[in-house]
């Protein structure tokens, strides 16, 4: 699971209001290089919750993202490289996503998060 996907997921339990971002418990992290596309990153920059990405990257052991950002940074190749690496190249392979409100753990196995709910959570 890439961190862009993590940035798209919230806890889906009925009644939970602060279900984003899910806290990452990482057991195994993979890096898979992919081509960098500046246009894609500029497009995604406006859709990503930055703080959630920074914290998620840290929980995977990557602390090179700046804490605060502004769109002018998208002109910097160094910034784009770091953003690209955090967003698309780091994968949570094994671990869990934890709801910040309830503490419910959603397992991630072989890179696939399982967001299925129990009957009493729907």
């Amino acid at each position: 699971m890439r961190l862009l996907t993590h940035n798209m997921l919230s806890c889906n339990i009925k009644g939970v209001t602060n279900g984003f971002p899910l806290i990452i418990e990482a057991e195994k992290v993979l890096e898979k290089p992919v081509d960098l596309n500046p246009d894609f990153l500029r497009n995604m920059f406006h859709k990503v919750e930055w703080k959630a990405l920074v914290d998620a990257a840290k929980s995977l052991g990557y602390s090179e993202l700046p804490e605060s950002v502004d769109p002018a940074m998208l002109e910097s190749p160094e910034f784009l490289h770091r953003f690209h690496h955090a967003l698309l190249e780091l994968h949570l392979e094994e671990g869990a996503l934890v709801c910040p409100e309830t503490g419910r753990k959603f397992p991630v196995n072989k890179g696939i998060p399982n967001m299925l709910l129990h009957e009493d959570e729907v």
Partner: peptide, 11 residues
């Protein structure tokens, strides 16, 4: 990217 979920629950 793959997610085990009901329709798009969580997204």
């Amino acid at each position: 990217e793959l997610i085990i979920t009901d329709i798009v629950s969580g997204l």
